[in-house]
Design a protein around this nucleic acid. Sequence first.
DNA 1: TTCCGGATCA
DNA 2: TGATCAGGAA
Length: 276
Amino acid sequence: MTLLVEQERNDALLAWYRVERRSFPWRGESDPYKVLVSEVMLQQTQASRVIPFYERFTARFPSAADLASADLKDVLALWTGLGYNSRALRLRETARIVTRDGWPTTPVGLVELPGIGPYTAAAVASFAFGEQVATVDTNLRRVLSRWHGESLSGPTLHSVAADDLGHPAADWNQAMMDLGATRCLPRNPDCTRCPVAQWCVGPDSYRPPTPQGRFEGSARQLRGAVVRSLVGGEATGREIAGHTGFPVKDVERALADLSDEGLVSDDGTGTYRIAE
DNA sequence: TTCCGGATCA
DNA sequence: TGATCAGGAA
């Protein structure tokens, strides 16, 4: 791929983005705390669903210091419905660290924080600190795989993303995610309305990730119900089983796991509550 | 590789 | 019903 082609493709992408970009409350945000809140909420969660959670959460906890000193129960009360509750616990841990030590501004520094992996580190670095790095998420993986005609993953994917990166990176990243979410769809890509179709091999090379197991009847469903119950107030395993309808044995198992993970605490008498 | 939530949409 | 989702950690 010649440099000229990459330039023309990125020019067309960014021109499209200026007109067709989606509007979100975190778009254009440069406060690293608010960027981080949005990015953690967006992990494995559709952007449209995050909007009301982001608005409520940032209103209640406007700064990292506010979140750092919050009770986990209050945090989870605003998280319930988003899913993956450990994200909230790790987000508060990171808030405590940056309140004490300040913010790393590079991906290498950010990725050391709890709950921040390669994607979120790149996102905060790009959107809050202006670092010229690619935010390699599921959208970029799909779009880049189709551009180049091979299913990209791992180090190869990141290398290709760095090569193709346009500038400013914050705009390019968000343009790529918008393209993936509104044109370059997993199942029904709308190539006729794609601004960069003439520089793209085509949609066939993309391979979807391995699908998740059933949610109904899963441990995840049970765990979610247990946390939701304890956000409402402390309770015994039997009580939780009673009003969630899950077997006591399974509830006890979930409580033990959630305790190990730091989401739940046990006073030793069989009564459980959200950890502090 | 597998597990971690749960709402949305085809 | 199933697929998808601005991923991360063990």
